[in-house]
């Protein structure tokens, strides 16, 4: 039998003993007062925050992917020319684009579409026709893509008023920012996990110190360390699990109650879970339970070292 198998079996025995419980062993440790509430509240609050961190991480991940994939497939040509040349230069640019391999579609935006783009800044009654507004051409890439530099050179030669923008300049920082936000979400989850472990360790230490006499009596009547530790570990693990279930459900409800992107468009309104993403917070209570298990077990065995 390999060492790994033996470890797995040992871990399973620990988990099974925890699940199965021993009402008599549980009774030998008296109720631990405020530490019970402290553990319950800590696990609940941390699970609630973990749900938000997870939502942030997943939402920014989706945003980064969308910016990276959707915007990478499109480009814009802006034509700034005197009014009498605008139509001719636009046609010339469209002709070049129609001859460029890798361009799936190219079209000039209508005055209404251009007005809609400017509306958030200048209002709805903007007289687009009477203003020297550049003409925009939307370019959609084919799957194989086009040679951006070649297109830029040709446009410079044949359409003097054209400025080619493949979005790279502003897309990259956005994708990078979204990626950083996603990482921050995961860092937050890691910090929440460590904080939970620290808080539960403190609560367990307080409970162990308050029950020093009980532990002493148990050792003197022949209790093994694992027996004593299990009584504390089971109690704290169940509390953390219960608190985390409540916190996770509350966090998911709060995310669900956030305004949707359709109701009020904006960056943060995309925060939330989509589809199977709603399953993502479900391991949080298990994580909290696991953290409580190991934190209390460590604290208990450290405390027991001082008791003969």
């Amino acid at each position: 039998m390999t060492r790994l198998t033996r470890r797995a079996q040992r871990l399973w025995r620990l988990v099974w003993a925890l699940i199965k419980g021993d009402p008599r062993a549980d009774r030998v440790v008296p109720p631990t007062g405020f530490t019970a509430w402290l553990t319950l509240f800590t696990a609940g609050a941390m699970a609630f925050l973990a749900v938000f961190a997870l939502a942030l991480s997943l939402a920014t991940g989706r945003l980064a992917d969308r910016w990276a994939s959707e915007l990478a497939q499109s480009a814009t040509i802006r034509i700034s020319a005197p009014a009498e040349q605008m139509e001719r230069q636009t046609e010339a640019a469209l002709r070049i684009l129609s001859q460029t391999p890798g361009v799936a579609e190219a079209r000039a935006l209508s005055p209404d579409e251009q007005r809609a783009l400017l509306e958030p800044w200048f209002g709805a009654d903007l007289p687009v026709d009477s203003l020297p507004i550049p003409q925009l051409i939307e370019v959609i890439e084919a799957r194989r893509g086009f040679a951006a530099e070649g297109l830029r050179l040709r446009l410079r030669a044949e359409v003097p008023g054209a400025v080619f923008d493949d979005h790279t300049r502003w897309r990259r920082p956005l994708v990078r920012a979204a990626g950083r936000l996603r990482s921050l979400g995961w860092v937050s989850i890691a910090l929440i996990t460590l904080t939970t472990a620290a808080m539960i360790t403190l609560a367990a230490n307080a409970a162990l110190a308050a029950n020093a006499q009980v532990i002493g009596v148990l050792r003197l009547v022949g209790a093994r360390d694992t027996y004593i530790a299990r009584a504390f570990v089971r109690r704290f693990t169940i509390r953390a699990l219960t608190g985390a279930v409540a916190g996770t459900l509350a966090g998911m409800a709060a995310i669900w109650a956030l305004p949707s992107a359709e109701e009020a468009s904006g960056f943060l309104t995309g925060l939330g879970f989509a589809g199977a993403g709603w399953l993502a917070p479900l391991p949080i209570p298990l994580l909290a339970g696991g953290v409580a298990f190991w934190a209390t077990r460590g604290a208990a065995f450290r405390a027991l070292k001082d008791v003969t």
Binding site: V221, G222, R224, D225, L304, T308
Partner: peptide, 13 residues
């Protein structure tokens, strides 16, 4: 430590 626990089951104090 486990041995001490077992031995204490044979010593009543």
């Amino acid at each position: 430590r486990d041995g001490i626990a077992r031995i204490r089951r044979r010593i009543g104090v």
